[in-house]
């Protein structure tokens, strides 16, 4: 669906570098981009969207040239059928949720059906008449996603869409993203720092550092959760334990199933993010 080789000067903390990425994406593929800050992740996304101009290379989508160095050709963002979800969501504060979506549509007869469908699938129907300022982060994120989809894109670009959200919301939205990606048969590129998120969603991952591709391939499963030793201080009601950690801090955890625990017993505690 997407075939590109893009070059762009980067100003990194380590001095001037060149973003240099050559890649082909199959239709329906979900690619994650990860890497330290200053690696050029957002720059790459902006070049694909047409928000910044490359210094060289080419970009073809579905056989149509979006950018070419020689002879010079550059398609403005308005003419690229893509959806972009910004890190700060960039919702229009003067419009309600429904108006934000309606603004994105191109004035087709069945726009209203699409908007209703998107509102329902992203659980925004109740919030349709609210303005963005009164919504929570997760809700704003869903509106941003719904708005990008209302423009009927073929390519969806997401700039760290879930980074600012708390864990339950993030897990819920990862599911939404996976569903949306499949249902609308989109080609999706997603910037993410979370290995678990990448493993859950992406077909391939592109690791960037200082503008260069460090690795391109299937996502690596995240490392097994680490454990820390703890000592049981007290056995509480409802199968819970009070446990002291190496630093001296105390936490309350559910007792491991099928095991009797006594005060003073040593215990290995799993530290992980989130359920599972």
């Amino acid at each position: 669906m997407l075939d590109f080789h893009l070059l762009k000067a980067l100003h990194t903390a380590a001095g001037p570098r060149t973003l240099d990425v050559r890649l082909t994406l199959a239709p329906g593929e979900l690619l994650a981009i990860s890497g330290p800050s200053g690696a050029g992740k957002t720059t790459l996304l902006r070049l694909l969207a047409g928000l910044d101009r490359p210094d060289g290379g080419f970009l073809t989508a579905d056989g149509q040239p979006w950018y070419r160095q020689q002879p010079r050709h550059w398609l403005p963002p308005q003419q690229r059928p893509l959806g972009f979800v910004f890190q700060d969501y960039a919702l229009f504060p003067n419009m309600t949720v429904r108006e934000n979506l309606a603004f994105a549509t191109a004035g087709r007869a069945d726009d209203k059906i699409l908007i209703d469908k998107l509102l329902e699938e992203l659980e925004l129907t109740e919030l349709a008449q609210r303005r963005p300022a009164v919504l929570s982060g997760g809700q704003q994120q869903r509106v941003a996603l719904a708005r990008a989809l209302a423009a009927r894109p073929r390519l969806l670009l997401l700039d760290e869409p879930l980074a600012a959200l708390d864990l339950p919301t993030r897990l819920r939205l990862q599911q939404v993203l996976a569903e949306v990606h499949k249902q609308f048969s989109l080609t999706t590129i997603l910037i993410s720092h979370d290995p678990a998120e990448i493993a859950r969603l992406a077909d391939r991952v592109l690791e960037l550092d200082l503008g260069q591709v460090r690795r391109l391939g299937p996502p690596v499963a995240p490392a097994a959760p680490a454990t820390v030793p703890g000592r049981v201080l007290a056995v509480l009601a409802a199968g819970r334990l009070r446990v002291q950690l190496p630093g001296g801090a105390e936490v309350e955890v559910p007792a491991p199933p099928g095991r009797e625990c006594a005060v003073g017993q040593k215990l290995a505690l799993t530290v992980g993010v989130g359920p599972g």
């Binding site: 969207a49 047409g50 928000l51 403005p76 963002p77 308005q78 003419q79 690229r80 893509l82 959806g83 972009f84 910004f86 890190q87 700060d88 960039a90 919702l91 229009f92 603004f103 994105a104 191109a106 708005r147 990008a148 423009a151």
Partner: peptide, 13 residues
């Protein structure tokens, strides 16, 4: 924020 106008551009406006 610059992203407001950029969002509108990516929506074809």
């Amino acid at each position: 924020p610059r992203s407001l106008s950029e969002a509108a551009y990516t929506l074809g406006k």
